[in-house]
Every structure is written in structure tokens, then in C-alpha cells.
């Protein structure tokens, strides 16, 4: 059983969480070009690395950020949005 640490609820089995993908800055839809928007909508960084991702602890609906090595599947740290030092 793989564990994930929710910043509010503590260490829980990963089955209590959903993964919502890498955090990606959204371009301004009003000013960006069609190509920039398509790039944002579709393209992904599929190569391995340490990524900042959205995760949610579903029983409590707590959304937070996990920094995870996507090749080793190792979570380095987790924190709430806006609490990154």
C-alpha cells in the first residue's frame, strides 16, 4: 500500500486520493493566440522528473500540491496551495 501525506489529514493510503495532473500556468485566454491556447489545452510534459502536481484527499475534499519524482514514484513533499516557502 502506497502512502501519501495530506497536509491536513496526515498519512493515508494513496487510494484515498485522486491525481489531477501537473500544475501548469494558464495563458490569458483573451490575449493569447490559438496556438498558445492549443498548447495549453493539449500538450503535456510527459518526460520524467520532479513535478508539482495537484492532488485531492477525497474523503475530506482537501486539495493540495505534491512534489513527486514521477520516475521513481516518490513523493518528496506535500503542502497546501499558497503555503510553499
Amino acid at each position: 500500500m502506497k502512502l501519501m501525506t495530506c497536509p491536513i489529514n496526515g498519512s493515508r493510503p494513496v487510494s484515498e486520493f485522486v491525481y489531477w495532473g501537473e500544475i501548469r500556468p494558464m495563458p490569458d485566454a483573451a490575449t493569447c493566440s490559438d496556438d498558445e491556447w492549443a498548447d495549453y489545452v493539449f500538450n503535456r510534459n510527459g518526460a520524467p522528473g520532479v513535478k508539482k502536481e495537484w492532488w485531492c484527499h477525497t474523503p475530506s475534499n482537501t486539495w493540495f500540491i505534491a512534489e513527486r519524482d514521477t520516475e521513481k514514484d516518490k513523493v518528496l513533499r506535500t503542502y497546501l496551495h499558497g503555503e510553499d516557502e
Binding site: 500500500m1 518526460a47 513535478k51 520516475e71 521513481k72 514514484d73
Partner: peptide, 13 residues
């Protein structure tokens, strides 16, 4: 699997 991983590890789940 429910989330991104770039390796061929398997799980008990």
C-alpha cells in the same frame, strides 16, 4: 494506473 509514473513498477493495489 490512476496517476502518472514513467517506470514499470507494479503495485499490490
Amino acid at each position: 494506473d490512476p496517476y502518472e509514473v514513467q517506470s514499470t513498477r507494479s503495485t499490490l493495489d
